[in-house]
Design a protein around this nucleic acid. Structure first.
Lengths: 210, 210
DNA sequence: GCAATTACATACCGACTGGTATGCATGTGT
DNA sequence: ACACATGCATACCAGTCGGTATGTAATTGC
């Protein structure tokens, strides 16, 4: 066992920074808090990350993006019945995610609201993740259209944009109401919207209530 | 003409604070900037507002809420054809609002995302405004239901919650993409969702494309 | 017209911020 | 085994933050 494990140290910083940023926002996130939490010092932190900004960008890329990847992107991409998978994820996301993720909001959305208008690099990175999300939903709808599960006249690009927007909106409003229940209610409506993209036949076949 | 006009001074501070908060967020909003912008001094500001928090709360109540009132709440409440008015507002809001309101985001939503989890008073005030919004849409849908413009089985409370959530979500995503066009596309989908709440007959009667 | 209050301006403060310069110990390549 | 780079700790810094104490001019009440 080594006394110095740079990769572990770096990861500890990233995780702690993620939590601090999730709770306080990026600008209000205190380097000092992260150091206290990890038991490290400024030397360690600024050895691994040149600036606070670089740390924030790394959190986006290596923590937030990866979480979304596992929770949403990958299942959606790999499923052979993408529309059903999308509906499934929308219907169950409120149970799959710890309740403080509703109380504190979506880490991605929080950062977008806070930083997009202030910092170009943040805007690019966040936009990148958002773009992947959108493209993933878009792909699911497109494939669904080929399978006849989405009506032919549906503009799947616009629909995907709306799904992601409404999704984030639901978390945001639920966060302000501090109500996981409202989140569930809201996402159920989004579920209804997506079902509304399906042909009448396929739509009727699905269960109605949540 | 008087040399001291406390009401005007107070208003100048509120307006400037609104802009500063809209641009930077509340925590990053700098008292010094507001003073520089208004040409006043700390003495003046802290005479009218006990703390920065009090200033923020006043901005919510006296600026943000009033703007939404004039732009959305009042028209919706006073219309005799509330569903049409709701659709009208959703369809044209992207033109009625200056483009920097898309680039900088909805002031209400920005503050909700930033402050709701951090400060109880903010959460209450913001939640109050959001509640009015929600109740107003709710009332519009309810009245629409009586008029037969909304299908009887629609859960108008859940639908109203979703409309507001998706609305904010659309602005948020458009802000991150720095794209007023995306805002329009996204709101058109919300328009479609609301139309989907109408009976097939009434829905068909409306124009399809934007 | 005098007293009291209101409406500001000036100067200052402690706390905290992100960031850096320096130093030292551990690990690594040869 | 020695040179060198990496990994991390300590101490310090300039700048900014919100907030306050004090002073003074303008306005108001009587």
């Amino acid at each position: 066992m080594q006394t110095k494990q740079p990769d572990l140290t770096r990861d500890k910083i990233l995780q702690s920074a993620f939590c601090e940023i999730h709770r306080q926002g990026f600008q209000a996130a205190s380097i000092a808090n992260i150091l206290q939490d990890t038991g490290l010092t400024k030397g360690a932190l600024y050895h691994h990350f040149q600036t606070k900004q670089a740390l924030g960008l790394a959190v986006i890329e290596e923590v937030i993006k990866e979480r979304l990847e596992g929770l949403i992107f990958r299942p959606l991409r790999e499923s052979e019945r993408p529309v059903e998978m999308l509906l499934e994820i929308i219907a169950t996301i409120d149970k799959k995610v710890p309740s403080d993720f509703v109380m504190l909001g979506c880490p991605l959305n929080n950062l977008m609201q806070e930083m997009s208008a202030l910092d170009e690099l943040f805007q690019e990175r966040l936009g990148g993740v958002l773009g992947v999300w959108q493209k993933t939903v878009e792909g699911a709808l497109k494939r669904g259209q080929k399978q006849g599960e989405i009506r032919a006249e549906v503009d799947y690009k616009a629909a995907a944009l709306f799904v992601v927007s409404a999704w984030e909106g639901c978390i945001g409003v639920a966060k302000n109401m501090q109500s996981p229940k409202a989140f569930g209610t809201c996402m159920k409506q989004l579920h209804g919207y997506v079902r509304g993209l399906m042909p009448a036949k396929a739509e009727k076949g699905r269960r109605k209530g949540g």
